[in-house]
Design a protein around this nucleic acid. Structure first.
Lengths: 204, 204
DNA sequence: GTGCAATTGCACAACAGTGTGCAATGTACG
DNA sequence: CGTACATTGCACACTGTTGTGCAATTGCAC
């Protein structure tokens, strides 16, 4: 009577999840990874993947939805109740950091021809939040930049990926990366380096 | 007796150049653009493109070489004889800016599976120069960052593309973009916003 | 063990893109 | 005009990928 799915679908569910996990990693490595590559990497036959997702597009779409949700969650949770713009930005970046690796896939996909119609649209809410935060910081004088808030949001976004890549290439220790990224983002937003460092030390 | 090529090859040369130009733009829009798309965009038949370049790979390779050369040129020219790290970085970014649009293609291609073996390698010299400049600035205290110089180079690079994209999306006026990008890069490197602004005003 | 669902292993059609061959056509130049 | 070259318009073979169909097999649950 417990909500147990019928038959041996538990294995099916596990497979589905694993396929999604592997697909994320595989597509991150190569945005053009074929269904066969993904299937093999997941220890499964291509035909099985089609049993879970009717098309390549559907698979990626599911992936995007999950990533967007994770991002929005982390961001919202981190900034809840924080009023100071600089602190909010710091907390946001620190919280977003662990998800950044997955986030990279979205970029890789969004940068290409719109593989799934409206990736940008689905990310819009998250981005808009960031823009509002930056705008507020600029208005209050906490941030200083010649760029308007929306453009600054682009910059912040790209900086996260730059740091991620630096970690991937072994230029930066993974444990320090989150805090370093945060300091750099704050600095780029015009927060004095000393205050940025202090803020990160205090928050993390 | 002048170095005039035989026959009507001047038209051929013009075609070749136009194909390269169009290919750059087309591949920027869609890194997977087919030879047919490129040919049509250049007002030419696919077969003609193969007349100039034996393969897709060769076409892209030629493109990469040109872009790398343009980048290295602009960078070297801008920094010639400038000793102050902050000023050198400012001049470098300002000079690199007009080429940034083209540079984006390289990234788009480099981020994908190594379409042409060794794009990163060919870019290495340019990047190394930047790393040395950043390192010197950090050593002298002109720059302040928790990131090591090579990682900071990644960040600087990505910031250029972020600003480029901001311009593409109409968030930023193209005329101001170069100076704005420079200020942001300097700021991210830990140069105080006031000094960064003054420096850019003085240099540009 | 029986049954049920997932998974597998093949086979297939459809499609898109690449690279090549060749004859016909166009075009500048002397 | 005639030569030389670039371009065109097919045609072709080859490859890789997608999505589907179906029978056989595996594994879990009861």
């Amino acid at each position: 009577m417990t909500a147990m799915t019928t038959g041996n679908s538990s294995r099916a569910d596990a497979n589905r999840r694993r396929i999604l996990d592997v697909a994320l990693a595989e597509l991150l490595r190569d945005p053009d990874a074929s269904m066969d590559q993904i299937a093999r990497a997941a220890g499964v036959v291509r035909r099985t993947v089609y049993g879970h997702f009717p098309s390549r597009e559907a698979l990626i779409s599911t992936l995007v939805d999950g990533a967007v949700e994770a991002l929005a969650d982390a961001d919202a949770r981190a900034r809840a109740g924080v009023t100071d713009p600089a602190e909010a930005l710091a907390r946001s970046v620190l919280a977003l950091w662990p998800v950044a690796d997955r986030y990279r896939l979205l970029i890789a996909l969004a940068q290409r021809t719109v593989t799934v119609q409206g990736i940008r649209d689905r990310l819009a809410p998250v981005r808009d939040d960031k823009v509002r935060l930056l705008q507020r910081g600029l208005d209050e004088g906490a941030f200083v930049s010649p760029l308007p808030a929306p453009a600054l949001a682009y910059v912040v976004e790209q900086m996260l990926f730059a740091v991620t890549e630096a970690v991937n290439d072994g230029l930066l220790a993974a444990e320090e990366a989150g805090r370093s990224a945060t300091v750099v983002v704050l600095t780029a937003a015009g927060v004095p380096a000393s205050r940025a460092t202090a803020l990160v030390a205090e928050v993390s």
